[in-house]
Simulated scan of single mutants.
Amino acid sequence: MTSVRFGFLAEPSSMSWSAGSIAPLPKYEQLVACIQDGERLYGDWCYPPLLPVSRNGGETQSAPEMPVGFALPATHELLLTGAHTGEEAENFFIALFGMLNGLRLQREGWQNFYRAPVRRGVLCDFHADAREIAQALEVATQFWDAQNDGGVRKLTFGALHWHLFAQLYAHDFERFNAQYMALDACWKLAQKTVVGCPQGGISHAKRAGKLCELLAIPTPAWAIISLDNKDCPLSGRRNDLIHEAMYAGHPVGFAHPAEYRDMERELTCLVARIFLRLLGIQNEYTSSTCTTRQTIGFSFV
């Protein structure tokens, strides 16, 4: 049996499933109030402090730059039992519990970069209640237990971690690039865990569509290859950015795409659906299209 403190979650969430339990810390209310009353909280986010610098013969003032990282207090405790103990499992279940709450949660002592979401639902387009979250954790536990290859577990956490981290970037081209990396991690994970997933060198243009086909997720139009093109709009945008430093037909940062303007946001939503389906979660959300702007329910089929 192992326990680890994590946060930041501004709700007294508690639950249990076969692998363990989650509960708020005894001083949860004080910890939450400390952040919510702080000057760095704005809207749904907590922003990093400015770093002090020395100038004018030793006078100190705030500089217009961010620190390398900043910490938020732990608000909850994760308790894992039996074969599910260990740092690797702790990191995975904390991150997954965070995703299911639409947050990026991490163990005590880890640092946040850029801004940190502090309101439930900021990093997702679904709503899951406590019962549905516990069900999802149960399904994920079965997936985790079935992986005897340590590399698969590491890849699983990596895809999850980067899907959440990617949403913290300020610019859409940064979020697109990082989210595509998470999609690539999901592709590699599918090759290792999904029966029928192609094992050879399949082009980037076909990967998103193939994942949707294998996992029974509606395929967005920007992931479909037209008859007269070797790329789909998704892979075309990715190739221009990675290989030519071009975005929307211009140098990075000088234009926003006129076609498929919501692709970056929709890609984020698609990666979430793909990742959860890879864990074995089949429900209303993972069967829905990623191109809607509405919040989807998380009820299980």
Rank of each mutant, 00 (worst) to 15 (best):
G86C: 10
L79Y: 06
G98N: 04
G109S: 00
L80F: 01
N101L: 12
R104P: 01
G109I: 10
H84W: 15
H76V: 11
G102L: 09
A89K: 03
L103Q: 11
N91V: 05
A83Y: 07
R104M: 12
E87F: 11
R104G: 05
G82Y: 04
L100P: 00
L103E: 04
R104V: 04
L105W: 04
P73Q: 10
E108D: 13
N101T: 09
A74S: 14
G109L: 09
R104S: 09
E88S: 14
T75M: 09
G82T: 05
H84I: 06
F93Y: 12
E87C: 05
G86M: 13
A89I: 02
E87K: 13
Q106D: 04
F93P: 03
E88V: 12
E90W: 00
G82D: 15
L96N: 03
G102C: 09
R104H: 11
E90L: 11
T75N: 09
E90V: 11
G98C: 05
Q106S: 09
N112G: 06
R104N: 11
L105P: 02
G82M: 02
L103K: 03
G98V: 02
F93E: 01
Q111D: 14
G82I: 05
F93M: 06
E90N: 09
N112W: 06
M99C: 06
A89Y: 00
L79N: 10
T75R: 01
M99L: 12
L100T: 04
L96E: 03
H76G: 10
F92K: 05
L103S: 02
L105C: 05
R107F: 01
G109Y: 10
H84K: 08
A95V: 05
W110F: 12
G102W: 06
H84Y: 15
L80E: 03
T81W: 01
G86K: 08
L78M: 11
Q111M: 14
L80D: 00
L103I: 09
N91H: 08
H76N: 11
N101R: 13
N91W: 08
N101C: 08
H84D: 12
L105E: 00
M99F: 08
